[in-house]
Write a protein that binds this DNA or RNA. Structure first.
Length: 314
DNA sequence: TCCTCTCCTTGCTT
DNA sequence: AAAGCAAGGAGAG
């Protein structure tokens, strides 16, 4: 089968390697590095990355304001690629509600790190596996599930991510064999629930944020952080602010605090505007690869919020 | 109700 | 080489 090619103009900056390796997606692999004519001498090269989008293998190269994509298997179509890579919007548009972040050294240089619009089911499993883990191990688990139980892709040696029904039928020890450890029963439990009662992801995408979070958190292995990651990376909800250990440190530093509940840090993040999830991803990378962040306190206060919520059903 | 502590796997890093 | 660490969650106390 001949791959179908899409060449798409990119609105604003795009750093493809960073976008697919920064910890939001786990199935991207670098397959080649091509020297760019005229830039090879300066050491610049365009990397080709392979991923799986909507059941097709996608091979992508970014160069001079455009993204070139070859699709193997059933072509998901140009619009799907635009959607997935968020090529239809300029990342700059997400900074308008929080111009003070522009002053953080290195921040604007990371605007090419785009938030992908990924598939919710794969995102859910990926972030259940992310608990107290690292990108490399998460990738091993997720890719291993696809290799063992995913449908093959015509003309490709890669496989689609397995459905909830498929994973629900898997033995726990076979999941553990992929190295995901104590997260295996969580993945299995969640797969069985969704296999029994499939979710209307579209409805969840449009639901009030607190309702969507509560729905996700009812699943085994899904707490506040994982739920927010699924909303942000899998359901196109930029109005979330997943608080993990790095974002906790970053946010405490930005607000000049020694400690605060995660819930209060999330609440403070609302002052960053409706695209705070986009900014979160940049702060995450900035804090993890760099050092402490400068304070931007005084502009917004951290307020402690009254608490009243439910427990998770067994 | 809320907070804190511990355990849960594994493999790479210091 | 033993301990620390890594996009947390669940259960106990």
């Amino acid at each position: 089968m001949k791959p179908s090619r899409h060449t798409i103009a990119v609105e604003g900056p795009l750093d493809l390697p960073l976008t697919v390796t920064c910890g939001q997606a786990f199935r991207w692999q670098r397959v080649a590095v091509d020297a760019v004519a005229g830039k090879a001498a300066s050491g610049e090269a365009a990397e080709t990355w392979s991923g799986v989008v909507e059941g097709a293998e996608v091979r992508a190269v970014a160069r001079q304001g455009e993204l070139q994509v070859d699709c193997l298997g059933r072509d998901p179509g140009r619009d799907a690629i635009v959607r997935y890579f968020r090529l239809d919007e300029n990342p700059e548009s997400h900074l308008t509600h929080a111009p003070e972040l522009r002053a953080i050294p290195g921040f604007t240089g990371l605007l090419g790190m785009r938030l992908l619009r990924q598939e919710p089911w794969e995102t859910l499993v990926s972030f259940i596996c992310s608990a107290a883990s690292n990108v490399r191990k998460i990738s091993g688990g997720v890719e291993g599930m696809a290799e063992r139980w995913g449908d093959p892709i015509a003309g490709s040696d890669r496989r689609a991510f397995p459905s909830p029904e498929r994973l629900a039928a898997v033995r726990e020890r076979d999941l553990r064999a992929l190295g995901i450890g104590f997260r295996a029963p969580y993945v299995l439990g969640t797969a069985r629930r969704l296999a029994r009662d499939p979710w209307d992801w579209g409805a969840l995408r449009r639901a009030p944020i607190e309702e969507a979070r509560a729905t996700l958190q009812a699943l085994p292995g899904v707490g506040p952080k994982v739920a927010d990651c699924v909303l942000l990376f899998g359901l196109d909800r930029l109005d979330t602010y997943p608080v993990d250990r790095w974002i906790r440190r970053a946010t405490l530093e930005l607000t000049s605090r020694r400690s605060a509940r995660d819930e209060d840090l999330e609440r403070w993040s609302r002052s960053l505007g409706p695209s705070r999830g986009y900014l979160q991803q940049i702060l995450f990378h900035l804090r993890r690869t760099g050092g402490p962040l400068p304070s931007i306190a005084g502009l917004h206060a951290v307020t402690r919020t009254p608490r009243a919520r439910r427990r998770k059903a067994s």
